[in-house]
Design a protein around this nucleic acid. Structure first.
Lengths: 233, 233
DNA sequence: CGGGCAGTTGACCCCGCTCAAGCGCGGTGG
DNA sequence: CCACCGCGCTTGAGCGGGGTCAACTGCCCG
């Protein structure tokens, strides 16, 4: 857990649409105030139920945000990727974190103290509207997730999740998804048991919908996967 | 569908914490611009997928917000009660409505055009922060909902929903919940089949946890209901 | 009186969870 | 260097929660 302290992280401004809204002066001040650390796979940024004293901006890497059920099972709510901010829900709602943020792929994270984040919001209404837009989109996604988990069966949900990962993380030169999850994490995302994910993945593989190589997943037939995911009978 | 047009709705300012943030001048202008209608049970304010041209403020009554699954089944996402605003998610995210808003209990609704709502946000940063706070709380609730539907069984969820309705709507003099839902709506809220809700309600009744009289529900043993809802084994 | 809708109950059975066993692989220590 | 361990993955067997279908009732309303 020996995090390497970085002094600069200009790339945040490049990667993140949000920070394009702030003025040159505001950016300069922010550069002084913010605080960057590198993180390794498995590191926890913050834990569900803890108080957060600021917001985080993901410079590089992948973060999973999950809640833990009473029996200890992880339910993954969403991921953050390069350029995303997180932790702002807790800061703005004035509540403890409702999820745990854990590193899935090594990267670096910038920290912006809550007071300064709120100052930016009050000073710059364009920035404020962008943050609102973000939280409202997230809310729309969460609502869709509720419908899916409540009404779709596991096969439909798994197909949908694979397509979603494809949209969010894209593929490498060989067509493999740019995110590597354990079967257990996939199960925590779909909201099912690990064994169910394994069985369905091998069914998809047998039907030539996907190709599997350890944790590398390649989508072969997106059209059919969409068909499955949307419960067209 | 002949909505009665009201000219005033000052009570919005009284009921709604949000609008306490705006100045006297802003309130006066808002009073001119906004537009109030009464609605009857079953009326639809807007439909999932449609574009919304402003936000709504519920003066009186109860609104259910639901998504419709591919098989036509309603999944209720949340309710609005007196003083709540809704539709802002769609306006701020710049997306079509992600839910249908339908009247559960007669009441009146004020409409504020999107342009004016956005103007208020830009002019008044306190108001902006309040709106953010609202959307972030809603997001926290949605995340919790995802966990519950994914990991709890139907009995646990039904107990939790009853407690939630109790918290949100309270009870009348006789201790009955101040919201009347059909069994089908309850099922759409819990995320299960109507028959399952009926069976579990009569089980709860048999075990003296609740009292039933048509759609009136009275919680008799909140402690035990909490115990059931939290999956303490 | 008849039609329709909400509610209820019973029967059936399938999806998906759980438990258990076995495999492959990488890391660690003797 | 090999033996061992533990973790992630896989597969099979079993079963129970809960979804579906059907039938019946009570009630409201035309």
């Amino acid at each position: 857990m020996d995090y390497y302290k970085l002094n600069t992280c200009e790339s945040c401004f490049v990667n993140n649409d949000l920070f394009k809204k702030i003025t040159k002066d505001q950016a300069d001040i922010l550069s002084y105030i913010k605080n960057c650390n590198t993180y390794k796979k498995g590191d926890t940024i913050y834990t569900e139920g803890s108080r957060i004293s600021g917001i985080y901006c993901l410079n590089k890497g992948i973060i999973k945000h999950y809640k833990t059920g009473n029996d200890g099972k992880e339910q993954i709510i969403r991921f953050s990727k390069t350029g995303d901010i997180f932790g702002y829900r807790s800061v703005l709602a004035g509540e403890p974190a409702c999820t745990t943020a854990k590193v899935v792929e090594d990267g670096s994270v910038c920290f912006i103290p809550a007071a300064h984040f709120l100052k930016l919001i009050k000073e710059n209404s364009d920035f404020a509207v962008s943050v609102m837009k973000l939280s409202c989109k997230e809310l729309g996604d969460a609502n869709q997730y509720i419908l899916d988990i409540a009404q779709k069966n596991v096969k439909e949900r798994l197909a949908e999740i694979l397509l979603l990962l494809n949209d969010n993380f894209g593929t490498d030169n060989n067509g493999n998804l740019n995110i590597f999850l354990t079967r257990e994490e996939l199960a925590g995302l779909v909201g099912t048991a690990t064994e169910s994910v394994i069985r369905l993945l091998s069914e998809f593989k047998k039907n030539k919908l996907i190709k599997l190589d350890k944790r590398k997943i390649k989508l072969l037939d997106i059209k059919k996967l969409k068909h499955i995911s949307q419960s067209y009978y």
